[in-house]
């Protein structure tokens, strides 16, 4: 069963055409990476999936909910789709533990004890058990991002969206975050990852989507040969620039 389906989706900001004719289907358990130059619409595409951006036309079905339909309850949809942001966006007024337990307690109506027990298991998974009582501003960027991943996992989502999760991190922090993401991918989570980490896309991704100027120019399930030689000319140009850096 497919998890996410875009059918002829268009997105405009006023007169600016941000997404052109998007057709994309993501299966359950797939790890899809989206790459491309800045301003190509990657993040916009990702943000439509949990309704942070509304599509202008076409059809977008997430977990059997039609997001273009005004009657769709976005809160119910979002419950099933987690999101990890470039700038982490941990709740600045809450401790690490509360960051993770707040969603399960408020939205899933879990008891405090149950939510905290699960949160501690997730802290263990991301390797930050000793930080439960810390405040977000006491953590490094890499630690904050791992907590953000734990926070989205705590909702037991059907899929997690990653919006450039390592772009704001110091180089030595990136590996820790990517390792956590790899672990989650191995557990079978459906993941859509907008990234500039070509190594991650090649190693962990089941599929790579190349975007430029709001178009999907290439969508390849043969990740290895995409990175050897993409079919699309602009993708070739992009990869040669990124990899020779």
């Amino acid at each position: 069963m497919s998890m996410i389906e875009f059918h002829d989706v268009e997105k405009y900001y006023g007169k600016f055409h941000a997404l052109y004719h998007i057709n994309l289907t993501v299966e359950k358990g797939e790890v899809v990476t989206i790459i491309g130059p800045s301003g190509s619409g990657k993040s916009t595409l990702l943000r439509t999936i949990n309704g942070l951006e509304r599509i202008s036309s076409g059809q977008l079905i997430v977990n059997n909910f039609d997001l273009a339909d005004k009657k769709t309850d976005m809160n119910r949809t979002r419950k099933n789709v987690g999101m990890v942001f470039q700038h982490f966006n941990l709740y600045a007024n809450k401790s690490v533990l509360d960051n993770i337990t707040l969603g399960p307690r408020l939205v899933l109506k879990e008891s405090k004890d149950k939510a905290e027990e699960e949160a501690r298991a997730l802290l263990d998974l991301v390797g930050l058990s000793e930080k439960a009582k810390s405040m977000p501003n006491q953590l490094s960027g890499g630690q904050q991002q791992r907590i953000a991943i734990a926070r989205s996992l705590a909702m037991k989502p059907q899929a997690i969206l990653f919006d450039e999760p390592t772009s704001a991190l110091d180089p030595e922090m990136i590996g820790d975050v990517l390792n956590v993401m790899k672990k989650i991918a191995e557990q079978g989570m459906t993941m859509i990852v907008v990234t500039h980490e070509m190594g991650f896309a090649e190693e962990v991704g089941d599929r790579v989507v190349f975007m430029d100027n709001g178009h999907i120019l290439e969508d390849s399930k043969d990740v290895r040969s995409f990175f050897e030689k993409p079919k699309d000319e602009r993708a070739q140009e992009f990869l040669s620039k990124v990899i020779n850096h």
Binding site: N75, K79, G82, N89, Y91
Partner: peptide, 15 residues
């Protein structure tokens, strides 16, 4: 307040 806080909370399933 950083708009990212609201986005994170909504993505977390909160109303």
């Amino acid at each position: 307040v950083d708009p990212g806080q609201m986005e994170a909370a909504r993505s977390n399933g909160m109303t």
